[in-house]
Each structure stands twice: as C-alpha cells, then as structure tokens.
Design a protein around this nucleic acid. Structure first.
Lengths: 192, 192
DNA sequence: TACGTAGGCCAACAAGTGTTGACCCCTACC
DNA sequence: GGTAGGGGTCAACACTTGTTGGCCTACGTA
C-alpha cells in the first residue's frame, strides 16, 4: 500500500511511519482527536511515543498526515443526468463502508474548530465543483451542494458515528432507493 | 427560570447552581465534552471548581444535569397528514435556533460513546413514537424515523456545528421548502 | 447571644498529557 | 576497521486535568 507520492528513495523507517499512520487513523476514528493520545497510538504501532514526534512534529501534524482526505467523487457529467443523485449516494456509501478516515474527520470536525474548517475545505473543494456540473443554475450550486451535504453527512452521522440501530439495519439498496431521489431533487429539481 | 422539578424548599445556593448549569451548557456546546473543563466552567460562573464537584458530584454528573433534553416534539396526529414533514422540520429549526443544549448533545454524541448512547435514547424515546403516529405501517416506523433523523441531524450538523457557509445562508423558508417534502416522503410515502 | 450548618474558597494530590533531549545500537559507506 | 548518521528507547519536564479535604465565613435558629 505505497501511496502515490514520489518522495525520496525509500527510508529504512518507512514501515514504522506507515504503522504509525495506520494506528493513528484507527485511534482518531474511534476516539476523536482529544481522546486519541499519542501514547496510545505509539503503543498500537509498537514504538516509542517520541518517534511520532520525530516523524510528524506534533499531534496536529500527525492528524494532518493521517487523514489526507480525497473523496474521489465521480464525474457526474458522465452519468445520465437523472441518475446523478443515486450515483452520489452509492459513491458515498462505498466510501464510508471501507474508509475509516471519514469517521475520524467527521468526529474531529464536530469537536474541533480546526476540524470544522477542514470539513469546510473538503466541501468547497470537492463536493461543490461536482454540484456545479449538474445544477441547472450554477449560482444555486452552493445551496444545493449544502443540502446534499446535509443529507449525506446526516446519514453518515446516524449510521456510522451515533450508530442508531435502525440506521444501521437499512440495506444498501433501501438507502439508495430512499436517499437517491432526495439528493437528485436537491441537485436538479426546479427551485423548491 | 425555575425548572419544573419540585425539590426541597429553596436553597440559598440556587443562584450558584443555575449559574453553573448555564456556564456548563455554554461551554459544552462550544467546546464539546473533553475540551470543556470544569475549571473553565467554574470561572465563567465566578465560583470555585470545587463547588461544581460538590453540587454535581463529577463532570459526568454535571453534563447529565446540564443537558436534560426534551425535544417537545409536536403531536403529529393534530396536523394534516400531508403537512407532517413540514411541521417536523419547522419544529426542529426553531429548537436549534434557540437552544444551545442541542449543539452540546450533538457534539458530545459524536465524540463520546456515552454521548452516542444518549442520542440513541433520545431517538428511541422521542422521535420514534412520533413517527409511529404517522407511518402507514408501524413496523416501518424505525427505519422511517431513522431516515428523518439522518436528514434533520445532517442539517443541524452542517448548519450549526460545521457551519458550512452555504448551509448557514439558507433561509428558514428555503429550508422548509427543501426539507419539508423530503421528511414528508420519509414518513408517509409508499415503500421506496 | 451562641452555635450548628450550609456556602464558599484555597491548596494540594494523583494521574495523564504533549513534548524534549540525552543516550544506545545498528547499518552503510569511506 | 573506523565512523557518521539514522532508527529507536528511556526518562524526564512542564503542564493541565478531575477530584479531594481542610478551613473560613455568615446566615438562620434556638
């Protein structure tokens, strides 16, 4: 699982570095920023806490390195216009199922001021452009994207963070059938 | 602002107690459970940290006392069946605008395991019964209520916690027009 | 007036935090 | 073979946290 970045040759400590990142992702996702301690992360990675500091400078640096968030949103111009909503929901579901970084980012976003700003950035740089592709009037794109974010993040919140039992019991197909039309409406329906 | 509970006569320390609760609500809402320190709360209330312990036993006890959450959901049997969604959204919006305890509970629910369980309880005891009143098939009530929770909490998350600018700029009327039909569909529409 | 008691403050404890610097070991190169 | 230098550990610092117990004050009652 070498990440795509092409840094200097290949340090002897790469194994440790990735072990730290993996442990950090898990802890941040499970406990949130404050409760996830450097000592606990280091213990999971079976190294000394001081190594975390050496490689990532500080706890904030570690968090930034651990959750480099790329939603890899699909190109909605390439799916039929009336299936955009369903496609978006499907993509988000897949993302959340496999990727625990998202839980970490959402947890921290809800706790921390800096975390909230990070999420604002993700919204602006990743979801908003996609919405702009599909929205009838580009000027409405921010509002429509915000509505989609509310629905999608609300699903993630209830299903993966708060873990409301009924939200967990819904199948992928049911969610697509319920949320797909909602997101579709937020994206493309005429004004209200 | 005497609360409805009919406890012993009226202690001389009632002013202090309510000052502590008010400060606690503010801090918990603004900072979340972990970052809201007893010392900071005590400072806001202009008393000694030890008083908080004396009156509320522990930090958890203080939190429990500070956020006694009653959503006061409307009786949906008394509004026209096809306006239930709109009524629910309107009620939630009013609730969040005036009540900062909700932000605290959501923040803590996203951070803390115990907080998540508290939110599960709120969902089960307050939102679920209301959904049961309106849902065509009572057996589907949990799933439908969960969908409503996802949409409503998602709105709260983006608008009041993450504070995404476009989510903040939507007016009350726009939100009613967009989310009302969504919640209505989740509550009463035939299966998918 | 005397006094018990509740309200309040102060200082400290023990635990846990992020962070730092000194020190050892092993490897790769001259 | 010697020697930088990076990988790694240990112990400690400085600080903050929730929490506790002792002590003073002032009210309300007898």
């Amino acid at each position: 699982m070498t990440d795509g970045t092409k840094t200097s040759p290949a340090r002897r400590s790469d194994a440790t570095r990735t072990a730290i990142l993996a442990a950090a992702r898990e802890r941040f996702a499970a406990d949130g920023y404050d409760r996830a301690t450097i000592r606990a992360i280091a213990k999971d990675a079976r190294i000394d806490p001081s190594m975390v500091m050496r490689y990532y400078g500080s706890k904030e640096g570690l968090f930034a390195a651990a959750v480099a968030l790329d939603l890899r949103l699909p190109d909605l111009a390439r799916v039929p216009r009336d299936e955009a909503g369903r496609a978006l929901v499907a993509h988000f579901l897949g993302l959340w199922e496999e990727n625990e970084e998202l839980t970490a980012v959402l947890r921290v976003g809800a706790t921390n001021q800096a975390g909230a700003e990070r999420m604002q950035g993700i919204f602006r740089d990743q979801l908003l452009p996609v919405a702009r592709q599909v929205c009838p009037d580009p000027e409405q794109a921010p509002a429509r994207a915000a509505l989609c974010a509310a629905q999608l993040l609300g699903l993630a919140l209830t299903r993966y963070v708060l873990r409301l039992p009924p939200a967990r019991e819904l199948t992928r197909e049911e969610l697509l059938a319920w949320l797909g039309p909602t997101v579709q409406r937020y994206l493309t329906a005429p004004n209200p």
